[in-house]
Design a binder for these strands. Structure first.
Lengths: 341, 341
DNA sequence: CTGAAAGCGCTTACAG
DNA sequence: CTGAAAGCGCTTACAG
């Protein structure tokens, strides 16, 4: 170590000084620090990690960066990590299990301290292998069947309940629902929340008014057209959008179709996004708290717990309570007949 | 090494077999591979990197993940890296030079193979320090004064020229401009492109029709209002939006204001985004080719060039030629008087 | 309070 | 074709 030579001490001492070992003499520490500064010394983390068996790198594998929930998770996560000088390795997997698998293998080769996976919902075997090696893992957004890792998900069911109740409380009785396919955790749970709440209020659900499809923008147009066909005749006065991707095309489509919001139609979305506040009118939504999800995940995989035997007696499934964000796209139901008199 | 023991060879041989050294006997390689498989062996990259002085990690520091250009750069970059089993460390800096500095220091401690910075435009000293240590660097989006690194930027000037020419070719003579502050490379260059092109066509620019502001969504509303005030009296028939962030609020604002696009007003944006295709009507834009920028950047910092003495005689400044993407928000100019007859 | 020595898990000349 | 040995740049018992 060059620094040691310049400071005129052994490399043990130099190392200790740099690492802030309390038993080093203040004066010699000074000398070492000065030498280090002069040489513009930067310790080699690889060597340190190899020796200490501790690494300061975290990993996150995520489906995409476009969905605002996912993006906010990544941003908050990397912010928290940065605050503690931890690094984060990113992989955008597009829901591809193979990408994810590769990432997880890499995680063990690079000895990551922890990994969070918001992805395909597969690879439980690999996920378990990580835990076995002492790498803490948490899965987000989707349940991964058979994994022993903790998981953090929005409370999809509750978010749907919340939205439906909100609409009902505003006097709406005929409510339409645009959601995601039932093969997804979120698709199933939001639909159930809607059904249960309507049922509990003795409200009827017209089957022709629920439209389920892929989580893709283009489904917004498809669903929008179907919705329009039945809207008037079914006297629908409110719409729940449980398919965020679809909302990207759905909202412009509705504006284009001259549907007046909220006068003619109230709308609420089950996932929030910045642009909802920019829309005219601003769109009410359910905030599923991506930031808090990231915080929880960070806490769980924090390296301070590194090496701590993580005796998982069972995967804990955290569900964050959603929050209703009222903006201007939901109005109270005006009975058309009364309006006529 | 456990694998060596199981396979009954020395660890030298095991290592060579795993690393695909050609002079290992096929049969012994088989044995080693089998043992490795059985033990579920994963090599420790840290140790390998320490020895070989080669690392498979790249870094990217970026202002934010919301801007679609930046997001696409990150996505493409990580995709390319993933294809070659390279890892990417991400830092979202929010344009904060200190964050960036910390990231750069970390880059040398972690011995990253290469780093790309699309950020504050500062930290030239640290950037140069990286190059001095053999870490290849490239700066993107903004020029960083005094850095010896290569830089890759959209050709802001040309994108503005392209848009203006397009509008002029459609018969527009009164054109308004909403852009970014002149303190930014992009703000200056887009404005100049607009001026030069108008001037070259002997077209007059009404100073009350150019609005410059911060790259923030809220400026969209501000600029939109100012624009509306002058639009009719100045007989403006087309608008160039050179401030992408502002467009988020500007476009909804214009729709809300019942401006009919493109009949009353033609619009073209100098930065593309997915949602422009979902808008009604789809918004014409200039594609500044974020994907190609990422590809170029990746090529430059590729570890295959690691260790190669990077004799930089001067920072090369790459500018990618922008592409006009015609959609439906630009129409040809209809002379109002003629329409009346 | 400081130093000499061992060792983290690999790779790679150097012999054979 | 294979093995013994050295060494990458650190940290950390163990002595002193």
């Amino acid at each position: 170590m060059q620094v040691a030579a310049l400071a005129g001490v052994s490399k043990s001492t130099a190392s200790r000084a740099l690492i802030n070992d309390p038993r080093i003499l203040p004066t010699t520490r000074e000398a070492v620090l000065k030498a280090s500064d002069e040489l513009n010394y930067h310790p080699n983390s690889l060597a340190r990690s190899l020796k200490t068996k501790k690494t300061s790198m975290l990993g996150i594998a995520i489906n995409n960066l476009q969905n605002s929930t996912l993006r906010e998770i990544v941003e908050r996560f990397q912010e928290l990590a940065g605050d503690e000088n931890l690094q984060v390795l990113l992989s955008v997997t597009h829901g591809n299990p193979d990408e994810e698998a590769r990432f997880l293998d890499m995680a063990i080769e690079l000895q990551l301290a922890g990994v969070i996976v918001a992805g395909s919902g597969q690879n439980s075997d690999r996920l378990n292998r990580l835990s076995a090696r002492g790498i803490s893992t948490v899965s987000m957004i989707r349940l991964v069947e058979g994994a022993e890792a903790h998981s953090i998900l929005p409370d999809y069911y509750q978010s749907s309940v919340l939205a439906t109740q909100h609409l009902i409380s505003q006097g709406h009785k005929k409510i339409s629902f645009i959601g995601g396919h039932k093969i997804y955790t979120s698709g199933r749970e939001t639909l159930k929340g809607f059904y249960d709440t309507m049922f509990a209020s003795n409200l009827r659900i017209d089957q022709s008014c629920v439209h389920l499809g892929p989580y893709e923008p283009s489904f917004g147009n498809v669903a929008g057209k179907k919705f329009l066909e039945t809207m008037r005749e079914s006297k629908v006065s409110a719409l729940i959008v449980a398919n965020h991707e679809a909302s990207h095309e759905l909202l412009p489509f509705l504006t284009q179709s001259k549907i007046s919001i909220p006068d003619e139609l109230s709308i609420i979305c089950l996932e929030d996004a910045e642009w909802f506040t920019w829309w005219h009118p601003p769109i009410s939504a359910i905030n599923n708290r991506p930031k808090e999800m990231a915080e929880l995940a960070f806490e769980i995989i924090h390296p301070k717990n590194y090496g701590v035997k993580n005796v998982i007696t069972g995967a804990e499934n955290f569900r964050l309570a959603p929050i209703l964000v009222e903006r201007e796209s939901v109005g109270s139901f005006k009975n058309p007949r009364r309006a006529k008199k």
